[in-house]
């Protein structure tokens, strides 16, 4: 099974952000959606976990059509999907350990006495051993992102969605986060959907790359295929050459 978005339309007021967005993500792969700021990448990602509902179109996660599920079924689906937020979105009144263990407390089949061990295990996976009792405000930006990742993997989700995981980080921390994303896929077999416009990162972590432009997927392929694309919009974006994109709206 996989994630499949078919002909998704979504508008905010007069502004139509997604205009027939379609994308299929195969199990066990890491797919990165690239595109300019404000192009609707985060909007597309939020549809997968039901944080937003489409005006039109369907989103399938395994056998569930997210756009048709009732709220309780959406909560059940979310236990299979981890979400790493752009600015980590850690609960600032809770310690890192409480943040990481929060999702586990909602899992009826997970014994509460096992939570501390699982939290420790997740913090170890993201190289944050010994940080459990700290508050989010006591962590650096990179550490917060890693804590956010630990929280997302705590419930052992099948899918992890990463919303700009390396934005605003220095090159070394970016490489650490990239390595973690690759490890999640290789060691835990997680299917990843990443949003990014850091092209170096994109080509390091992705099995597939899809470019979102003007509300639809403009091109999709392996990193090599995208790098060799002759579409001026795609080339202009990945090479950072706006002059190639001018006059190429559709």
């Amino acid at each position: 099974m996989s994630i499949k978005m078919v002909n998704v339309h979504r508008a905010f007021g007069e502004k139509e952000v997604l205009k027939g967005f379609s994308l299929e993500i195969q199990d066990g792969t890491t797919t990165t959606i690239i595109g300019g700021s404000g192009s609707g990448k985060s909007v597309a990602l939020k549809h997968i976990v039901g944080l937003l509902r489409p005006d039109e179109g369907n989103i399938w996660v395994d056998e569930d059509n997210v756009s048709r599920l009732d709220q309780e079924s959406v909560y059940r689906l979310r236990q299979r999907v981890g979400y790493v937020f752009q600015f980590a979105a850690l609960f600032d009144s809770m310690t890192i350990a409480e943040n990481v263990g929060l999702g586990l407390r909602r899992m009826s089949d997970f014994p509460s006495e096992g939570i501390p061990d699982r939290v420790e295990e997740c913090l170890h996976l993201v190289d944050l051993d010994g940080y459990g009792e700290r508050l989010p405000s006591q962590l650096s930006g990179g550490q917060r992102k890693r804590a956010g990742l630990a929280r997302a993997i705590a419930t052992k989700p099948k899918y992890i969605l990463y919303d700009e995981p390396t934005t605003g980080l220095d090159p070394v921390t970016t490489a650490v986060i990239d390595e973690l994303i690759v490890r999640m896929s290789e060691e835990l077999g997680v299917t990843g959907v990443v949003i990014s416009h850091d092209m170096k990162s994109v080509f390091r972590i992705s099995d597939r790359v899809a470019m979102l432009y003007d509300g639809v997927i403009r091109e999709e392929g392996t990193p090599d295929q995208i790098q060799g694309s002759d579409d001026p919009i795609v080339r202009g974006f990945i090479e950072g050459r706006p002059e190639l994109m001018e006059g190429q709206q559709t």
């Binding site: 939020k46 937020f85 609960f91 600032d92 999702g103 909602r106 929280r151």
Partner: peptide
């Protein structure tokens, strides 16, 4: 986005 985070954790 802490409220969105709560939702993604099935709260």
């Amino acid at each position: 986005e802490q409220i969105d985070a709560l939702e993604t954790l099935a709260y």
